[in-house]
Design a binder for these strands. Structure first.
Lengths: 196, 196
DNA sequence: CGTCCCGATACAGAATAATGCATCATTCGT
DNA sequence: ACGAATGATGCATTATTCTGTATCGGGACG
């Protein structure tokens, strides 16, 4: 229905498809339901800003505010860069575990309000899931998530959450250095503009 | 509550303030209520994607999808450009008329569904209101709007709407050429990033 | 001191997004 | 021909946005 967001949503969809990510996969990564995404993409629903951000972030995109004046410049930049080959690292066996974790965090966020810690956790999880983890690392993550699950409703959750956030981030940082080559873009990111 | 959109919203607010636009003024331009905007800006409410787009467009901004990889580049571009002096052309006496018109269009859109024509009208109005119109031109606009108002509920609205859209756009095009110098940016468009 | 504009807040009501399932028709690989 | 995965749809329920309108305290200006 809403015309303004149409182009943005269409772009997101194109990129999702070009990256070979299914709605279901995306829904898990983004913490939304497949049904939801389908309706958004087919224009039957106008997403909330944060839903849309979740979607796009899960596609390795950022939503940015740009002065109208230099939209063309940015468009140029983007288009130039959008050539190469690979597609985003899709579902590993562990995906479901991560998906659940992300859901959990999301739920906690809008139950107790979002905190910097919860947010860090969410972010880190998104990062971790697209990395190949050794058994040992995976083990650590599993434990942390389990701990989060256990304490989610506890009155004393705050410090626990903080600790978990810290541990996850530590892991993330350690990986960020040794990380070998990884997936890259594939989409085109065009527009459908026609001004008078 | 939602952390992801926080930065975006904060940016929008900064820019609004830097441009010397009040919430009320913005609310009129964007077709939202002041109350709504206040709540969005103070984080008490998570806007819908289209609401947010309306807001930002009214501030001469575009919401763009950018691959994470080249966020820094875009940021550079934007920041470089953001120096000068003026502020966005604020309320003229005619503003209220335009505001009402925009509201009307919005209402029609979500009453009968948005059409390309309605959208064109909305867009054009947004453009026209920031231009100094001669009495004659203003007269034309006033008539067109009045016509729209009259036919809004009519069963035969479609062709009328189409005609109005066309007329408005014609006016817009004629202005786009002769247009003298006009307002420019003033804001900074920074970020609050801190990665690990 | 009075007035005007600002942003924040309240509140009732209508409209919609979003969840959580479940299902279906199609397409694709085997 | 079969099974798996994809996107579209339906539906009931809950949560949230958004409108409209009105008020309030604060700051600026005269």
């Amino acid at each position: 229905m809403a015309y303004q967001s149409e182009s943005l949503i269409a772009q997101a969809r194109e990129i999702r498809e070009a990256s070979g990510v299914s709605q279901r996969a995306l829904s898990e990564r983004a913490g939304l339901t497949q049904s939801h995404i389908s309706q958004i993409e087919s224009g039957k629903l106008e997403p909330g800003l944060s839903s849309f951000i979740d979607m796009t972030r899960a596609l390795d995109l950022e939503l940015m505010l740009v002065p109208k004046k230099l939209v063309p410049a940015v468009l140029g930049l983007v288009k130039a860069q959008a050539m190469p080959d690979m597609h985003i690292h899709a579902g590993q066996p562990n995906d479901k575990r991560f998906a659940r974790a992300e859901r959990l965090v999301k739920k906690m966020k809008h139950l107790y309000g979002s905190s910097a810690d919860l947010d860090r956790i969410e972010d880190t999880i998104r990062f971790l899931r697209r990395v190949n983890l050794s058994d040992q690392e995976m083990q650590l993550v599993r434990e942390l998530i389990a701990r989060l699950e256990r304490y989610q409703a506890s009155a004393q959750a705050a410090p626990v959450v903080h600790d978990i956030a810290q541990n996850l981030q530590r892991l993330r940082n350690s990986l960020a250095h040794a990380a070998p080559s990884e997936p890259r873009p594939a989409y085109s990111l065009d527009d459908g503009d026609a001004d008078a």
